[in-house]
Nucleic acid binder design. Structure first.
Length: 560
RNA sequence: GGCCCCUUAGUCAAGCGGCUAAGACGUCGCCCUCUCACGGCGAAGGCAUGGGUUCGAUUCCCGUAGGGGUCACCA
């Protein structure tokens, strides 16, 4: 076989040599140890949790080392492409602080392309792939397999994979193998015939591996692995001339200068293909990090890969549920690096971007998504925010998902901010909510729109006691009192109706009293907030103001 | 089914030949306390399994089991 002639027949329009192409993409001028990483999604939908994971790693590793983090859109499968998905992806990622240096940057006029190693969309790189495809043919490392249109249609019509039952794998594979070996022996004349008849062809790699032989390989996350050599003549170029993932991966990551390939462990089985391809092409193999999948539990209680359709997968769901991006990022960090929490406890004021992210600390096994943990992390993050920051985020969230509440918040920023300031800022800040969606339930009573007077008192309390306590409170209440004076007055009210003023005394001998000052506080709390639980009553009353407090107490008295 | 990866409590995890096997979340109890939240203290709960190697295995090796992934002209 004259490979040179074959190459010319298959790629007559390719005139560039690999060397000429390489010259267009010189090595990047970067500091020692700088990592070049990428996020390479296919634009088939929204970003899900399993995508934010590797992209965060890539972003951290690149930016922590003074390197480059870029976006490459893998749109080689037109059938699956979803309109507008790429843009949504970029915006969602940006929302979580994952910003690119090349490929897509968010500028003043929205999303713009940037960088000298493009194009950054695979659909625009066909000419590049063809240069290297031609070279492989010239080297006798790739060959065409022609298909008639009828065969192609049949292939598209049936879902081949679904038909093949587990039992049939063996048989099917040997059949496939025979077919593959026959296809390798195509002659130049046959090629000419097919081309003349305008038959489409795929380009397949000529595999020289033996799966019985294992290649030792070190993955940065998984450690030492044994990879069986590849013996499959996998497809490089589809019949439309667009590359498959494997081929695009090799050409793109080589030309774009990727130093660390970060991807899910589902790619591990095809690693042998990639090793072979890089060798055939004479490319230096990048470092690989195959990261474990995030799992979920299925109905049977087994772990399953968190997939797009699962609850909690779509990152937009987190926005809807009211999780602040900072909280999600922090949770991700705890999953990525086991020592993150420890570091954070020692550096509570530092942003997560200051954390020295360490590849060695990454887990090689998949973890289950845990809402309990997310909520805990989230509460902590929120408790460290300023009242103003909380206010702004809650307002923005509510404006989008609870317009009525949002409008109330927006109408009086000072009032709302004062509410969020309760118990905030000290050494032991309150942690009342993990999501913005919980806020209304927590502080809705501050707004007359969400407050109703109702007798929520326990049956065991004599209504006369409650009336007496509320009346006593109204008589002595003065909004200018400081906290101690205020509480002394409550105690006085308690005493006047025969309730204990000292809790220790009361607990030691509860039968000696009709109730305690705690009960009196509760009488007030229900009248003023409509709830059995609330933050500190003094603070609540300070914010509500004299008029509203007195009115609510009076209303309770008339409705009792 | 073949191949590959994984396996410490309900969850996330330290551990890297000798420890009463850290810590965090969750659960439960107690304390603090005007309720809640916070905080403090405490409890329950774990090295999948069988063989080796070794004076000694959670740790190293082999097998078994379980789980996951993959086997497309999808990524």
């Amino acid at each position: 076989m004259d490979y040179q002639q074959l190459a010319e027949l298959l790629f007559p329009s390719v005139t560039q040599t690999p060397e000429e192409v390489e010259a267009l993409y010189p090595p990047r001028q970067l500091p020692e140890g700088a990592k070049v990483t990428r996020f390479a999604p296919s634009p088939t939908g929204f970003v899900h949790f399993g995508g934010l994971f590797p992209s965060t790693i890539g972003e951290r590793l690149a930016h922590q080392s003074g390197g480059v983090f870029y976006l490459r859109i893998e749109d080689t499968d037109a059938k699956r492409e979803v309109e507008g998905a790429a843009e949504g992806l970029i915006r969602t990622l940006a929302h979580y602080g994952v910003l690119f240096d090349e490929g897509a940057v968010i500028g003043e006029n929205g999303i713009e392309g940037k960088g000298n190693y493009g194009p950054y969309k695979q659909s625009e790189r066909a000419h590049l792939y063809h240069v290297f495809a031609k070279k492989l043919v010239q080297d006798g490392k790739a060959y065409p397999v022609f298909t008639t249109q009828e065969e192609l249609d049949a292939l598209n019509a049936t879902d081949k994979k679904a038909e093949i039952k587990a039992k049939d794998w063996h048989e099917d594979q040997s059949e496939q193998r025979e077919k593959m070996l026959r296809a390798r022996e195509i002659t130049l004349d046959e090629v000419k015939e097919h081309l003349a008849a305008k038959h489409p062809f795929v380009l397949r790699l000529f595999a020289d591996g033996d799966p019985e032989r294992k290649t030792p390989f070190t993955d940065l996350v998984k450690g030492k692995l044994e990879i069986p050599e590849n013996d499959e003549d996998f497809v490089l170029l589809k019949s439309d001339g667009i590359p498959t993932y494997h081929f695009a991966h090799a050409v793109d990551d080589h030309l774009m200068g990727t130093t660390h390939v970060i991807r899910g462990e589902e790619w591990l089985p095809s690693l042998a293909k990639h090793i072979m391809l890089f060798r055939y092409l004479g490319f230096r193999l990048p470092k690989y990090m195959h990261i474990a999948q995030i799992m979920r539990l299925d109905e049977a209680g087994n772990k399953k890969k968190l997939s797009k359709r699962d609850m909690g997968a779509n990152m937009d769901d987190y926005s809807r549920m009211g999780y602040a991006p900072a909280c999600v990022c922090e949770y991700i960090m705890t999953l990525l690096n086991s020592n993150y929490e420890e570091w954070h406890m020692q550096n509570p004021e530092k942003p997560y971007t200051d954390f020295p992210f360490n590849i060695k600390k990454m887990s090689s096994s998949g973890c289950l998504f845990d809402f309990n943990k997310l909520n805990d992390v989230s509460k902590n993050v929120i408790s460290r925010m300023s009242a103003k920051e909380v206010y702004e985020q809650v307002r923005d969230w509510a404006l989008q998902y609870d317009a009525e509440f949002g409008a109330l918040l927006a109408k009086d920023p000072d009032y709302a901010t004062a509410i969020f300031a309760i118990g905030r800022g000290g050494k032991k800040p309150r942690k009342d909510f993990a999501t913005w969606a919980e806020v209304k339930d927590f502080m809705g009573f501050f707004y007359d729109e969400y407050f109703t007077v109702r007798d929520a008192y326990d049956e065991k309390f004599d209504r006369a006691d409650i009336r007496a306590a509320l009346e006593g409170f109204l008589q002595s209440y003065a909004p200018s009192d400081d906290m101690n004076v205020w509480f002394d007055k409550i105690k006085a009210v308690a005493e006047s109706i025969g309730y204990a003023t000292d809790m220790k005394e009361y607990k030691q001998n509860p039968d000696a009293f009709r109730g305690s000052v705690a009960d009196v506080s509760m009488f007030l709390r229900v009248a003023v907030t409509g709830k059995l639980n609330s933050p500190d009553m003094y603070a609540v009353m300070q914010i509500l103001g004299e008029d509203r407090v007195e009115q609510r107490v009076s209303n309770m008295l008339t409705s009792l």
